[in-house]
């Protein structure tokens, strides 16, 4: 797990708030084992707000049902002045509760019981999004993509990416190693009303392959998953 986390992210300060001290103990253990070095805990809403004001954590994991001041109230208070990433970790799994959480400004919502790995992946994704690396370079089998400059370096030559190609690549990179459906990719570059855009997507994918692959007709980094979508393999993922 730790190798997936850039070192800078592992030094981020994480505040975990839950009224179950046993759970807090377990979560601390999970985060320390994953390589995180700065983990704070709070067992009430008031304590959470106090630590947030004093310690300025980089990410907050917040339970909903805490005595006196509940998680939603704490979140509302935080959101009055701060955009710190907040992940709600709660036993309240109904759709209405999730909607309430997102309406109040939660960045993610995980329902108990959960697998520690899932929590770590979500925290990592939130941190990546909130604190992007200054230099974002993606190494592929035959090329390197500089996301900041929207450039592809292949065989010593530099090619520019169009805005759509960059959006497409970023979406694939966010989910590197995982299948991304045609609809998700279309909506990433066209917005909500993407229907009928599938053929244009194929054209963008073809152009992208011409820029990143050694042999675009036999792709090894940007793979088609028949009927479903596409999958990007970076050098980090391996195969």
């Amino acid at each position: 797990m730790s190798q997936l986390n850039p070192t800078t992210l592992l030094h981020k300060k994480i505040l975990i708030a839950d009224d179950e001290t046993d759970l807090l103990e377990m979560l601390c253990s999970v985060f320390f084992r994953a390589g995180y070095t700065d983990v704070l805990t709070a067992s009430s809403g008031e304590e959470t707000l106090k630590l947030w004001r004093e310690e300025h954590p980089d990410l907050i994991i917040l339970d909903v049902m805490m005595p006196r001041t509940d998680g939603f109230t704490v979140l509302k208070e935080i959101r009055r002045t701060s955009r710190v990433p907040v992940l709600m970790l709660t036993a309240r799994g109904e759709a209405e509760d999730r909607f309430t959480g997102f309406e109040n400004g939660a960045d993610d919502y995980l329902i108990k019981p959960f697998l520690p790995k899932e929590l770590l992946f979500r925290v990592q994704a939130l941190l990546k999004r909130a604190y992007p690396e200054p230099e974002r370079k993606v190494y592929l089998a035959a090329s390197m993509v500089d996301l900041e400059k929207a450039e592809v370096w292949k065989d010593g030559e530099c090619t520019g990416l169009t805005a759509k190609e960059l959006q497409l690549f970023e979406k694939l990179y966010e989910n590197a190693g995982r299948i991304v459906t045609t609809g998700t990719l279309c909506s990433a570059i066209c917005g909500e009303f993407w229907q009928g855009y599938e053929s244009t997507l194929s054209t963008h994918i073809r152009h992208l392959r011409e820029k990143i692959e050694e042999n675009p007709s036999k792709p090894v980094s940007l793979i088609t998953v028949k009927g479903l979508g596409y999958r990007l393999f970076t050098e980090e993922d391996g195969k």
């Binding site: 759970l23 377990m26 999970v30 309240r92 019981p113 520690p116």
Partner: peptide
């Protein structure tokens, strides 16, 4: 089902920790 979630989280968490 609500009350069982937190204890189950701990069982899942510690079991995963030990497994890993």
């Amino acid at each position: 089902s609500h009350d069982i979630r937190t204890p189950l989280s701990m069982i899942l968490g510690y079991a995963s920790e030990i497994e890993d």
